[in-house]
Structures are given as structure tokens and as C-alpha cells.
Write a protein that binds this DNA or RNA. Structure first.
Lengths: 151, 151
DNA sequence: TATTGTTATACTCTATAACTATA
DNA sequence: TATAGTTATAGAGTATAACAATA
């Protein structure tokens, strides 16, 4: 190694970044989403679409706007998402009985089957990704910590 | 509350999502980046640009590609980033002595001052965002956990 | 007046491919 | 042949503004 490129050959020093939760959150999330996309490539949905399905499954009958707000998205972004999930026969729009402006979202039977398959896949993915943690207690602690960080 | 919209008035049940590290990572990271952007609106840089600056500061003389790889970005994305930071007089390209294809990146004096200001702002932001955690030990534990999750 | 779903639009981020000059 | 920087481009994702129907 010649003296003049000594620096360039050393390993990168992350300096301050290594102590910044915001940066470390981003790297961890990028890793989760990249592997998620691989695991889900055959099912044809993104992490964002899975979140929509999971929320409709747990909260049948909600409006598009309610689901969007719960996910922190703008309601305009829900249109394409629900269009796609309706084309995939996973969820369906039904006219709201109490408000003719809005639709209520429900799972289809196909959607329930799909959700069962996808959920198992998600939990397997989670298990693999969190295998570096000590035990279930540590995973629970991490989940609780992340929740407080998003409030 | 009328019986037919009982469900719609209840609070959202996050169901499975609440147990999914990938989803909780995303929400936490979105919160960090949104508040970061507010805090940095007057300085004119995004979280991604701050990461570039921090890495150049800790690793002067590296090439664009080296910085990009360290951040997990494509090298093509570095062009606009370095263009902008060079226009802001924060970092500068210098011709590499050993390889005429590449540039070495260095901080300017303005850049060093800027970094000092920005770093303080970042650490203040971090402190506020992690104030919900018990102590410094818990922050360190979180940082270490997040690091293992991104490998 | 306010809200729901919708469309159009724009802006950022990211990824890919191809080009040039060097190695 | 391979690599560094660059350009063009295209695809997500996201946010804003406006509109029609309805509240």
C-alpha cells in the first residue's frame, strides 16, 4: 500500500452517523424493505400494500380516508392502492349505508386466504430478520421502543 | 353512537402490524425524517445530504463511488448530491492524483463550519426524539440493535 | 361550509442503462 | 475488459390543489 492512498484504502469511518438513531433507523428499514420485496415478489405486493390489507382485515368497514389516516398516508394515495387490491380481488369497496360519499372497505374470501398466506410469509421474514436478537422479550422491547419513537 | 357505525367510530386496531418490526421501523423512521426536515429547513439539506457531508468529514479524500457504497446508494445518485453540496461550498471535488477518472471529496472551510452547526442541530434533534428512552444505556442498546438489523 | 373519493400534477428518491475517459 | 463519473430516463412514493357529489 503506497503512502498517498493510505486513507482511501482504509475502511470507512461512519463517525457521527454511527451514533445517530435516525440514520440507523433508515438503514435497518431499508434492509427490511429490500428483503421483504424479495420474499413477496411472487405475491405482487409491496410493504405499503400489505399494510393496507392488514388494516382492512383488522378493521372491516372503514372508509379509505380512515385507513389512510391510520397509516399516515394522504387519502389521494389510497385510490391507486385500493384500485390495485380490488383488481387482485383481495379487498372490495362497498357503498357506505350512512354516507353516500364514501366507500366501506372489506376483505373478499380470496383476500382472507391471501392474507393468511401473506401473514405467514411476513412472520417468517420477521423471525429471520430478528434472529440476531436474544429472545422474544428483546423483540417486544424493540417493538415498544419503536412505537414510542413514532409518537 | 348509532349501532350501524359502531365499528367505524372505534379506534383503529393495528392487529398484526403492531407486532411487525418492519412496519414499526418505517413509522419511527418517517417520524424522524419529518421532524429532521423541519429542524433543517433553514439549512437547506435533507437527511440524505447530511449523511454525505458526515461521511466526507470523517473520510476526506474518498471518491464519490466509495461514499455512495458506504451509504448504500447508487453512484449515479451521488452526482446531483455532490453538485448541490459543491454549489453550497460545503464540499469540493479535487482531481485524484492516482486515478484520473475519479475525484476525491474534501470539506471546505465553510463546510467545516456548516458541519459543526448541523451536527449540533442533529444531536439536539436526536436528544429530543430519544427523550422517551430511559437513559444513555438504552440509546446505546437501541443503536446496537438497529445496526445488527441492517446487516 | 366541510368532507369523500377522485384526478391531475409535481416533486423527490431510487434504480438502470448507456456513454466517455481512463485504468 | 473493467471502472469512475456522468447523463438520461423511468418507476415508485408522496404531497398539493382542485373538482363533483354529498354532508
Amino acid at each position: 500500500m503506497s503512502p498517498e492512498n493510505k486513507d482511501a484504502d482504509n475502511k470507512i469511518d461512519y463517525g457521527l452517523l454511527d451514533k445517530v438513531v435516525g440514520y440507523r433507523l433508515r438503514r435497518a428499514q431499508m434492509n427490511f424493505f429490500a428483503t421483504f420485496s424479495e420474499v413477496f415478489s411472487d405475491l405482487g405486493i409491496s410493504p405499503g400494500l400489505f399494510a393496507v390489507i392488514a388494516l382492512v382485515e383488522s378493521n372491516p368497514g372503514r372508509t379509505q380516508t380512515a385507513i389512510a389516516q391510520a397509516l399516515g398516508n394522504d387519502r389521494s394515495a389510497m385510490v391507486a392502492a385500493v384500485d390495485k387490491l380490488e383488481k387482485m380481488k383481495i379487498i372490495e369497496r362497498r357503498p357506505s349505508k350512512s354516507d353516500r360519499r364514501s366507500y366501506a372497505l372489506y376483505m373478499t374470501q380470496t383476500g382472507n386466504d391471501f392474507f393468511k398466506t401473506a401473514s405467514k410469509r411476513v412472520m417468517d421474514h420477521e423471525k429471520e430478520m430478528t434472529s440476531c436478537l436474544k429472545d422474544e422479550k428483546e423483540v417486544a422491547w424493540l417493538l415498544e421502543t419503536l412505537r414510542t419513537l413514532s409518537d
